[in-house]
Computed example of a mutant assay.
Amino acid sequence: MAKSATLTLDLLKENFVICRLSPSSSLPSWAFTGPFYSITKTNDELSIITMDNNQLPKDIQCERNWKCFKLLGPFPFDITGVLTSVLNPLAKADVGILAISTFDTDYVMVKDNNLQVAIDVLKQHGHTINV
């Protein structure tokens, strides 16, 4: 992907929560809510990103108030620079992110309190944001 390439991103309307469970935990039913969720298990943790429906158990370690951009793909695996074209401008603006990749595309999450800054910065770098 050329440095000057621009992308189109959809801002998903839902609010998301990122939860950390023990790696030995079984998958809870609340994880499978909404149009988007991501589940990653490692030797160290079970990480769940799901729609924040305010019905999560109180004893779960969670970070709330995340918004999610979907980079409109699909992007072939041999294309380079897709994520960096979004992440570099956000990093320079001190906007922290969580990136998730799927077979077809990438998703970039930002905290709700950084959403407008993220939108403004991405637009300034030529990206189109569908809200």
Rank of each mutant, 00 (worst) to 15 (best):
F69G: 01
E45S: 14
T84L: 11
E45T: 10
D78S: 13
Q61H: 05
I48N: 03
L46H: 12
A93L: 06
T42C: 10
L72H: 05
D59C: 05
N43L: 11
L87H: 02
I97E: 02
A93P: 07
L71R: 07
D94R: 13
N43W: 00
N65S: 14
A91P: 00
K67C: 15
A99N: 04
I60G: 05
I97V: 15
E45D: 15
A99V: 04
T84Q: 13
I49Y: 00
L46G: 14
C68E: 00
T84I: 13
D52Q: 03
A91Y: 07
L87E: 05
F69H: 00
T42K: 10
N65E: 15
L90T: 11
V82W: 06
A99K: 02
E63C: 08
N54T: 03
R64C: 02
I79L: 15
I97D: 07
F75N: 04
I48D: 12
M51F: 08
S47C: 14
Q55I: 10
T50W: 05
T84W: 01
G81P: 12
N54H: 14
A93E: 00
I49R: 02
K67T: 12
C68F: 00
S47A: 11
T50F: 10
G73I: 09
T80D: 07
P76A: 01
K67I: 08
L83H: 05
C68N: 08
S47Q: 13
K70S: 09
